[in-house]
Amino acid sequence: MALHGLRRRRGRADEDTPAGERHAGAPAAAVELRGVRRSYGRGASAVHALRGIDLSLPRGSFTAVMGPSGSGKSTFLQCAAGLDLPTEGSVRLGGTEITGMDEDRLTELRRSRLGFVFQAFNLLPALTVEQNVTLPMRLAGSRTDRARAADLLARVGLDGMGARRPAELSGGQQQRVAIARAMITRPDVVFADEPTGALDTTTAAEVLGLLRDAVDSLGATIVMVTHDPAAAAHADQVLFLAEGRIADRLPRSPAPTVAARMTTLTARGAAA
């Protein structure tokens, strides 16, 4: 399936992209974690999921996060997205310190300034495609921008399908709706948790191409947790977690290189 012209020619991005999506004058870092630790339980039985994460991710970047089972990937995503609070340290999103925010303010921030793409799509079956896409605007109390929804649906290859229900779409199409929904509020960051885990290889590649183009063409910032080296190969960099720490980094690389680095990391953990 073609990607319906989502990719734009280099040099025209600023001309074609709305100023709000370029985050003019905004802080350079979209995500900052400083000394972030997260423990569950106390004493000898405590589980230390994160053991001191220091990280700054620039706007308009695509970061993949990988690691063995139990390495802290899910906890990292939850703390970075304000879905969980660190035991120690601070988290800033789009220049806003979220550590210590009360739940009402965190909920408002997640609705208006963050986007989410999950493995299970999480579309509401009773709503149309357009209504699913515009739902974050409605929840945030913003004016529903149907023109923007239509534009985003066209960009992800679903032009003219806004009146359909999720049950009428394939899995890949539903994930395209989820990407459009994640982008509708022009978020500071889109967090993606195994976004291709339920898709076949061909459809997964198309969805990853859409995420890549959202970064290149719209200036989106994406943080994606994945176990798949082919998915991670679309990112600008790969962070490898092990035992709650950033154990390694890799600039944009082909899937075999990512897989080899992951194998090495796993072997180190097994030998420790």
Rank of each mutant, 00 (worst) to 15 (best):
V215I: 04
A198F: 09
V129T: 12
L135D: 10
R59C: 06
G67S: 07
V215Q: 08
G171L: 03
L85C: 01
M101H: 09
G89H: 03
S45C: 00
L169G: 00
L241T: 03
G70Y: 09
S45E: 15
D16I: 06
P68M: 13
L169E: 02
M262V: 01
T226N: 06
V31Q: 05
A255V: 05
C79N: 15
T63P: 00
G141P: 06
V215H: 03
G82M: 10
R34T: 15
R113Y: 00
M161N: 08
R92V: 01
R42S: 15
H234F: 15
E206N: 00
M66G: 08
P136C: 07
K73C: 12
G269R: 14
R155L: 14
G72M: 12
L93C: 05
Q173Y: 09
T202F: 01
H227R: 00
C79R: 01
K73D: 09
A271E: 14
A147N: 09
V190E: 09
L250E: 13
A178E: 10
A167G: 14
D248C: 06
M262A: 15
Q237H: 02
T266P: 00
R148I: 08
R186S: 14
A81E: 07
V65C: 11
A220R: 04
A26P: 05
L77E: 02
A167S: 14
A24K: 01
L199I: 05
G209Q: 00
L83R: 01
V177G: 11
A255R: 00
L135S: 06
T257H: 04
T107A: 15
I179E: 11
L106G: 12
Q175R: 06
D54A: 09
L83K: 06
G11V: 03
